[in-house]
Amino acid sequence: MSIDIALTLESIPKMLMGIGVTFQLLFITLGLGTALAIVLLLMRISGRWYLSVPSMVYIYVFRGTPILVQVFIIYHGLPGLEFVRESIFWPILRDPFGCAVVALTLNTGAYVSEILRGGVLGVERGLLEAGSALGLSVRQRFIYITTPIAVRLATPAYSNDVISLMKSTALVSTITVVDMTGIARTIVAETYAPYEIFLSLAIVYLIITWGIQKSFGAFERRMSRHVKQETAA
C-alpha cells in the first residue's frame, strides 16, 4: 500500500476552498455565541429565580446532550413542525448553513456561559469587599472589579472552547454544508483514499488550531502583565 502524494497535493486546494465556510461559521457562531453567553450569565447570577432557573436549565440541557443531536434536531427536526415552517425564522432554518449557525451558537453559548461564570467566581472575595467598603455599588463593583479580572481568568478556558468550536464545525458536513470536511468526504467517496485525504485535512485543522492557540497565548500574556507570575515548581 503506497501513499498517493499526487492525489494529496491536488486535493488540498480543493479542500481549502471550504475554509471560507469553516471560518465564516467559526466567527459568526463565536460572536453570537459569546453574546448569548453573556446574557445567560447575567440571568444566572441575577439572583432572581425566574431568570436564573431558565438559564440553568438551558445550560444544563445544551451541555448534557451531544452536539450532533442538537444539530440534527435543528436541521431535521424543526422543519417537521408546522409553526416553524410558517415563522419568520424559516428562511434561516431552511438553509443548512443557517441551521448550522443556529445549532452551534446555541451550543457554544451554554459552554462559554459556564466559562465566564468560572471567571466571575474566581474573583477574590476580598477585592469585592474592598470595593464594597469603599462605597461602590453592586453594579460598579461588577463593572470595574469583577469583569476585568473575570475576563483574564476565563481566557485560557475560553481559548479551549474556541478550539472546540472550530472542531465542531466539521460536523456540519453531516447536514450537507460544504465545508472542508464535506469536500473531503466527497473526494474520499470517489477515490477511496481515506488516509491521504483525511490525514492531510487533519493537518490543516491542526495548523488552524495552532494559530488560534498562539493568538490567545499572546492575548493572555498581555492581560497578565501586571499579575504575579507563579514560577514553575
Binding site: I163, M166, K167, S168, T169, A170, L171, S173, T174, T181, A184, R185, V188, P194, Y195, F198, L199, L201, A202, Y205, L206, T209, W210
Partner: peptide, 11 residues
C-alpha cells in the same frame, strides 16, 4: 486535541 473528532473517526 486539535483534530475534529469526527475526522478522527473517519480516519
Amino acid at each position: 486535541r486539535g483534530t475534529p473528532e469526527i475526522l478522527v473517526l473517519f480516519i
